[in-house]
Design a protein around this nucleic acid. Structure first.
Lengths: 252, 252
DNA sequence: GAATGGCGTTCAACATTATCGGATGAAGTG
DNA sequence: CACTTCATCCGATAATGTTGAACGCCATTC
């Protein structure tokens, strides 16, 4: 695999773009230079290039920079090529609307879950899970779905990467986790009891392809109190129903 | 403005990412090297960097590359910071659903319209307008909305950039365009009569802020025959109603 | 099963290229 | 009007990216 050294200027350019990931607030050349601990002129060269290419845009008023519309095209290219994200979106939207909470869609990648879509409703509080975020499997609802439905060998390899307490509630021993996964496998859905973040609870269900292999997982996520107020069996049924509707829609 | 030379490796890295914009099909190192007319090793260095950073991902089976999930995060950062895209999305979704056609949202940027969101419905044919695409104003429905509702001075500056026949139907003289813009201003919506692409027709309406300034434009777009089959006054009313609902939702 | 060809990857030498400190000038502040 | 702050520009320097050649893996062929 890639052991060759990364190309410095490319890595730095991407670091600059990533600085805008949380919030996309305007930033000055100076601020960025300080964040990356680089000289102003170096940063200016990079920023200027990104600006010329449309990946950053400069506010004429204060000369500060923020993400440009060009990055939209890239983001959209991934999701539109991704049949899953495309077909699943309306279903997530409906769930968000029905329960007035945030709905997340995730896939597994190299032992991590990656969130690839998210829908919110006006009532839902903003869950700080951003699209593209990676999380470990054992401590999230969607992640545990993967562990429960992936081929046992694959799942064990991932579990072998290590468990740890993320919150006091995290299931951090292999024994307890095995029991939990058995339960999830039996019931067909997973519950995250504030195992990743205190106060945040979610219920998740696996999405399969026609061959019965898990390809994604979706969850309804929100403040613990509000999620617990929803009858669990009803919510779980909705999620599993939605999951199979997505499978049907995708036709793979 | 940016007159300094672009940083070569950054520009090339972005060119590589852009190769995947249409379709995001897997590409080999060799293919990319040929496309960009660079040596295999140069391309490998760039690709490897992007791969390590998560912007590309390699298919283990055939060693080919495609866009990685990391770019999702960037794309989402723009839209989520963008109150407009966030608030407008459910409304576009509803329009798409009601009329079973593609719905587009666009803003103006440096004399071009940039599409920042798109919703489709199962029935809608896939319009080849990708998110992040730029188009000239005079030849599109959403663009003409901007020309009609932007301050006259701004609009004239943009018109001054030049008109040209994109299709036989394109309005390519200043005189005719002025008449058309007057009509649009009076009626409150614009019709694109296959002026950008033969066979594709759209109806567009402006989105204003509370101060009455145009900040975006939305359209329902589809095959000419199907769009013409919808009663124009009803469709236009839907679009204008949606536009003002978005204004209300944004509260700016 | 040896031979061939194709392709991703690595390497080391070289020269291009990115980097940096310092200079410039515009905008804002007391 | 001096003074600060910051974006932008410039030129010297050396670090960095580029390149062709070579390696090794895999698949196909004979």
């Amino acid at each position: 695999m890639g052991k060759t050294k990364n190309i410095q200027s490319v890595e730095r350019a991407m670091q600059i773009l990533e600085l805008f990931e949380q919030g996309n607030q305007e930033k000055s050349v100076k601020e960025i230079a300080e964040h990356l601990d680089l000289s102003k002129s170096t940063v200016f060269g990079l920023i200027n290039t990104l600006n010329n290419l449309g990946y950053l845009r400069q506010n004429e008023e204060n000369a500060k920079y923020s993400l440009g519309t060009r990055v939209l095209a890239l983001g959209h290219a991934v999701s539109s090529a991704n049949l899953l994200a495309q077909k699943a979106h309306p279903h997530l939207q409906k769930l968000s609307f029905d329960y007035q909470e945030t709905c997340l869609l995730a896939v597994e990648e190299n032992g991590f879950v990656v969130y690839i879509d998210k829908t919110e409703s006006p009532g839902s509080i903003s869950i700080n899970t951003r699209i593209g975020t990676k999380k470990e499997l054992f401590c999230t609802g969607v992640g545990k779905c993967f562990l429960a439905f992936l081929p046992p060998q694959t799942a064990n390899n991932i579990i072998g990467l290590g468990l740890r307490k993320v919150t006091p509630n995290t299931i951090a021993t292999e024994h307890e986790l095995a029991e939990e996964l058995q339960t999830i496998h039996d019931k067909g859905y997973a519950v995250d009891r504030e195992e990743y973040e205190l106060g945040i609870r979610c219920v998740a269900a696996p999405i399969f392809n026609k061959q019965g292999e898990i390809i994604a997982s979706l969850s309804l996520t929100g403040p613990a109190g509000r999620i617990q107020a929803i009858p669990l069996d009803r919510l779980a049924a909705s999620l599993m129903e939605t999951a199979s509707a997505i499978t049907r829609d995708m036709d793979i």
